[in-house]
């Protein structure tokens, strides 16, 4: 207890603080069993179901399906739930008393989301390679789909997680994942669904269209994803509550 008291006036740099926060979010996400199940377990199960069983017959390449599932899990369900619980525990309020600025909390969270998605996709790619399911799609198109898909869904994680009660978010964020992957044109192709044409206007449908160059021309899917991103971000900025 002999440490001299602080007279330190120099704060750590903004980018260091954002990186410290990103590392923290990554650590807590990847240690959480439920989050891992969502990020890697369920997409892996879908991959196996498509490639090794007759349970799901779809013409959509497995790499597209797993990419969209990872984007939804890493970009929406997982951050939505964790943001809601941080708010409930009051940890954002506590962090607001530390040298960590709110902008660095946001930036760090976004970095962690992107890294989580990359890690999950890398892990699934390695497993797919071992299974002999080498992706035949163009890597650049898949990467663009993942980036725009994340941009489209991440703001909505903050809209939901930043306004509703944690228990509500827990149910809704998981329900959205299940409904969107089953009936949003991902696991069951849009062409097999009666409302299939409308799915092109939702993030999941637009991601599948963009990655497979099907349905709408690629440009329209890009516009749809950017529009979801813009509307979501505007709403998130207006409605987000730190606690």
């Amino acid at each position: 207890m002999s440490t001299p008291i602080s007279t330190e006036n120099s704060t750590r740099s903004w980018s260091t603080l954002a990186a410290v926060h990103a590392r923290w979010v990554l650590r807590t996400t990847w240690r959480n069993g439920e989050q891992l199940f969502l990020l890697v377990g369920i997409p892996l199960a879908a991959l196996l179901a498509i490639t090794r069983t007759d349970l799901l017959s779809t013409s959509t390449p497995p790499v597209v399906i797993t990419t969209v599932m990872v984007v939804l899990a890493a970009g929406f369900t997982s951050p939505g739930i964790s943001v809601a619980f941080e708010r409930r525990y009051g940890s954002f309020a506590f962090l607001g008393t530390t040298p960590l600025p709110r902008s660095a909390i946001i930036a760090g969270s976004l970095m962690a989301i992107a890294l989580s998605a990359i890690m999950a996709l890398a892990l699934l790619s390695i497993i797919a390679a071992f299974l002999g399911e080498i992706a035949t799609n163009d890597f650049a198109v898949i990467a663009l789909t993942a980036v725009l898909g994340l941009a489209a869904v991440v703001p909505w994680a903050f809209v939901l997680g930043g306004t509703a009660r944690s228990e509500t978010v827990l149910v809704l964020a998981n329900a959205v994942f299940v409904v969107a992957t089953l009936f949003g044109g991902v696991l069951v192709p849009a062409s097999s669904l009666p409302y299939g044409a409308a799915l092109a206007w939702l993030p999941t449908g637009a991601m599948v269209d963009l990655a497979t160059n099907a349905g709408n021309a690629g440009a329209v899917s890009v516009v749809v994803l950017v529009a979801w991103s813009g509307v979501g971000a505007t709403l998130a900025v207006r409605t987000f509550r730190w606690r």
Partner: peptide, 20 residues
């Protein structure tokens, strides 16, 4: 910024993340 560095705060509801 100066106060965030030099003033330690304990909030009434703690603010500790429950899963950590």
């Amino acid at each position: 910024t100066n106060n965030r560095l030099q003033v330690g705060v304990m909030l009434q509801d703690g603010g500790m993340p429950g899963s950590a």
